[in-house]
């Protein structure tokens, strides 16, 4: 299994898939972070609507969470501490999944706040949950380390 994965990653297609996953993950998190950074008070309101976190923490989370998203996205895109960034974004996304699942379980009809309040409202629900599960899968792919094909292998394949 592991060797099959290594073989897949050593192909050009595998390496391209990993690169694409990194770009997609970075773009999604940057797009999610910027509106929240522009309007942190609106994001704090979104956080309070989940009725999970204590009131005192909502503004702190509204300040820190978008920076976690932005820092992770830049790191995964540039390759600086890439695996740490993937773990950070993975944990964030897992938290979002848990939050959305709890909102669904409590039948809350609220804006998910995924892309802040600058964007069109996205109600919490199964589509948002599935999107985040898909994003988590992409983060796992983005964390993989494709090995460059050896020159001899390239020659042999011609």
């Amino acid at each position: 299994m592991a060797s099959a994965l290594q073989r897949a990653l050593s192909t050009r297609a595998g390496a391209s898939a990993v690169s694409a996953a990194r770009v997609i993950v970075a773009v999604v998190f940057i797009a999610a972070a910027l509106p929240k950074i522009v309007d942190p008070a609106g994001f704090a309101e979104d956080i309070r609507n989940y009725e999970v976190f204590p009131l005192w923490s909502s503004n702190l989370l509204a300040g820190v969470v978008p920076m976690l998203e932005l820092t992770g996205a830049i790191a995964i895109l540039t390759g600086w501490k890439r695996r740490g960034a993937a773990l950070l974004l993975g944990l964030l996304t897992a938290s979002f999944i848990a939050l959305i699942a709890s909102a669904i379980a409590r039948d809350l009809n609220i804006d998910c706040g995924c892309f802040g309040q600058q964007s069109e409202a996205q109600a919490v629900g199964w589509p948002r949950l599935l999107e985040d599960v898909g994003l988590l899968a992409l983060i796992v792919v983005a964390a993989l380390n494709p090995k460059r094909p050896r020159p001899s292998a390239l020659v042999a394949s011609r």
Partner: peptide
């Protein structure tokens, strides 16, 4: 884990400065 902690600390610092 260490890299994640570094990134997390950096992001938290930026977040606190932002607030």
């Amino acid at each position: 884990l260490r890299d994640m902690a570094i990134l997390g600390a950096l992001a938290c610092a930026l977040g606190l400065v932002s607030i």
